[in-house]
Nucleic acid binder design. Structure first.
Lengths: 174, 174
DNA sequence: TATTGTTATACTCTATAACTATA
DNA sequence: TATAGTTATAGAGTATAACAATA
């Protein structure tokens, strides 16, 4: 490592601080392939478990819907528009907790693919009424079938009853 | 809106496709402050509920530990190092599911604040043995107290029993 | 004056690839 | 050759601020 790693701002400082005069405490080396490492306080933290679960669940969603190239947020936007045609961008953004600035780009890509259309609102010339196109409606139906498949993966992973319990517990966040 | 919005690549196309000849279907306007909007298929998707919950929980964690300027990932790194002194960067990255490239920067900032030190490994000159500094140990103790406070916020939000049930259900992901 | 959609910027996070030193 | 740490880059995602058109 020498040159590169030793010039590292901090590694050098650390080396000075504690030269290398240990031997006993550093026993955690044996193996350390990533399994037998304790998490201490992390176990018992809801946030950590939820973060890991969320990573897994999003990865499975993306993988399961890879053939149609739809990501979780795109799916949520299309689902809400499909269920509430005519919604403004502000309303969708608020409902889903997305920044309105970000929704602009999301809708750009969905409009490019002819899944969604922005129609000038008749009542407020500042806003757009969002609708699924005919193609978007057909596509969403397929997305929902794939999303249901993904949901079955979740049930397989944590158990059918646990999945339902989870949905109940977290219902207040939807 | 005219100029800016009408020149928008897609809005224009959409307007052409369906001029503005609607009136009935667009009823969803009334109010639309963000509450009375249905989610349709999103309700029943574990991923959506988990995402919303995760956002809430991380925001509360960040807020609760704002005084010490520690974010969830930094906390997890310090906790794992504290519980397993001497671990290599690879081992920490693997255990926490963090990219090793990202861990470099995380450790840089923790080392700058004198919470963590990278000590040259005695057995493998490529790797670093990670340790908490004395200051880091004291600091982590405080972080844990604040994290416990955050955890109480979670319990208040979803209920004590539900929080425990959640931890049980998601134990396989830690 | 406030709001809608838009653009732009910055910062975090994720995902890669490439490089050096070492094994 | 493979691995540990590092650097760099590109893409999402998040958080802001500012602007034009409109309310």
């Amino acid at each position: 490592m020498a040159s590169k790693q030793k010039t590292s701002r901090k590694a050098a400082a650390a080396a000075i601080r504690r030269p290398r005069a240990r031997a006993a405490n550093d026993g955690a080396y044996a193996g350390d392939t990533g399994d037998d490492i304790g998490l201490d306080a992390l176990v018992g933290h809801a946030g950590y478990a939820v973060r890991r679960f969320q990573l897994w669940i999003f990865q499975d969603f993306i993988k399961t819907l890879a053939t149609v190239d739809i990501r979780p947020t795109q799916y949520s936007v299309m689902t809400v528009i499909g269920a509430n045609p005519g919604l403004s961008q502000m309303a969708v953004a608020k409902r889903l907790g997305i920044e309105r600035a970000r929704l602009v780009h999301l809708l750009d890509s969905l409009e490019e693919r002819d899944f969604v259309s922005r129609i000038p609102s008749a009542t407020d010339r500042r806003s757009h009424a969002l609708h699924l196109t005919t193609r978007g409606k057909t596509a969403l139906a397929q997305f929902k079938r794939l999303a249901a498949e993904h949901e079955r993966h979740v049930a397989e992973k944590i158990g059918k009853e646990n999945r339902e319990r989870l949905l109940q517990i977290l219902a207040c966040f939807t």
